[in-house]
Simulated scan of single mutants.
Amino acid sequence: MFIKTIRTLEDMVVMVDMVDMVVKHLPFWTVFNSLDELKKRIQEIANADGFVIVTRRSKKIGGRTGRVWLECDRGGEHQSTATLRKAGSKKTGCPFYLLAVRNHPYETWEIKDGTIEHNHELCEDLSAHAFVRRFTPSEMKLIEQLTAQNMEPRKIFQTIRKQDPDRFHVQKDVQNVVAKIRAEQRQGLTPMQSLENVLMKNDFIYEIREEPGTEIVTEIFFLHRDSRVLWRAFPHVMMIDATYKTNIYNMPFIQIVGMTPTNKSFIIAHAVVSKERGDNFVWVLERVKAMLDECMEPRVILTDRDLALMGACGTYNRML
């Protein structure tokens, strides 16, 4: 493996003959008007060759940034602080680096030193590098706005890709940002505490069931007061369905829908249960029945062919 440090003009002449990348790209002789311009150009060159440049460190001269060391993002050694499990890393101690120096009299920037060599294979797909998948401030603002509108991360990702198809983002990057935004909105509360606050703030009626002997919530049932009024007025038809593995907790989500005489549907209630078992569904249906008080009971119950749910509906009919 050839590693050469550039320190003199003679070294540069030798490197031109031996390293094709220098011949094609790296502008050791180019003067840049600003550090940002230099970084942008170097990053373009690096990306074209299959690697990513990051800032390793900088040094101030006269109170201002005067030297900046740029390196391959695989440079350095991973320092893990994990105690429970060993964390992985893509760092390989890559020796590639460039030294950018500010020319004080002219306020320009140049590459003055560097090691043009890698100890790893260059990438054909730059999406494997987290650095190039970082969002710009405008993209972050867009994600925040769309998240506030309850848009799904998948659709947010598609929106960003349409605006700039050449970016290297993957859908998981958007999901991570959305998760961070929602965690900040919870202000340190657990997801269950946050949900309870939302239900109370928006005037929902809700009930929870805890695991015996613990304070672990296993089921939660909730409906809006306006839905309760509609349910008491039109209790004739009830449709119930459970969807599985559609949330990060892999808990069945139950939706209960009613029907008006004019063939318009309305939401009666929702519930999240821990398991898709008959007693869990029975608990939900008992809550639905309790909302009717002494009103007429439903005459038709529609559902799919989920056996546990069908069995719970049979139990519900016997309660009527």
Results as ranks from 00 to 15, higher is better:
255 Q>R: 13
255 Q>G: 13
256 I>R: 04
258 G>E: 05
259 M>C: 12
259 M>D: 02
259 M>Y: 04
259 M>I: 15
260 T>M: 10
260 T>L: 04
261 P>F: 03
261 P>E: 11
261 P>R: 03
261 P>W: 08
263 N>Y: 09
263 N>M: 10
263 N>Q: 07
264 K>T: 08
264 K>W: 11
264 K>Y: 15
267 I>Y: 01
267 I>W: 03
267 I>V: 15
270 H>E: 12
270 H>I: 00
270 H>M: 13
271 A>V: 06
272 V>Y: 00
272 V>M: 12
273 V>D: 09
274 S>G: 06
275 K>A: 06
275 K>V: 05
276 E>S: 10
276 E>C: 10
276 E>R: 12
276 E>Y: 03
276 E>M: 07
277 R>Q: 12
277 R>D: 06
278 G>F: 00
279 D>N: 12
280 N>K: 11
282 V>P: 00
282 V>Q: 07
283 W>I: 04
283 W>A: 03
283 W>G: 06
283 W>D: 05
285 L>T: 06
285 L>C: 09
286 E>P: 00
286 E>R: 05
286 E>H: 02
288 V>N: 00
288 V>L: 14
288 V>A: 14
289 K>G: 00
290 A>P: 02
291 M>G: 03
291 M>Q: 14
291 M>V: 08
292 L>H: 11
293 D>K: 14
293 D>F: 06
294 E>D: 13
295 C>A: 12
295 C>P: 01
296 M>H: 09
296 M>S: 13
297 E>F: 06
297 E>H: 06
298 P>Q: 01
299 R>P: 00
299 R>D: 14
299 R>N: 12
301 I>G: 07
302 L>S: 10
302 L>D: 04
303 T>G: 13
304 D>F: 05
305 R>I: 07
305 R>G: 00
306 D>Q: 08
307 L>A: 15
308 A>I: 11
308 A>H: 07
308 A>W: 02
308 A>E: 11
309 L>T: 01
310 M>L: 15
310 M>I: 14
311 G>R: 09
311 G>C: 02
312 A>S: 13
313 C>D: 08
314 G>R: 12
314 G>E: 09
315 T>M: 02
317 N>A: 14
318 R>A: 13
319 M>H: 09
319 M>K: 05
320 L>R: 07
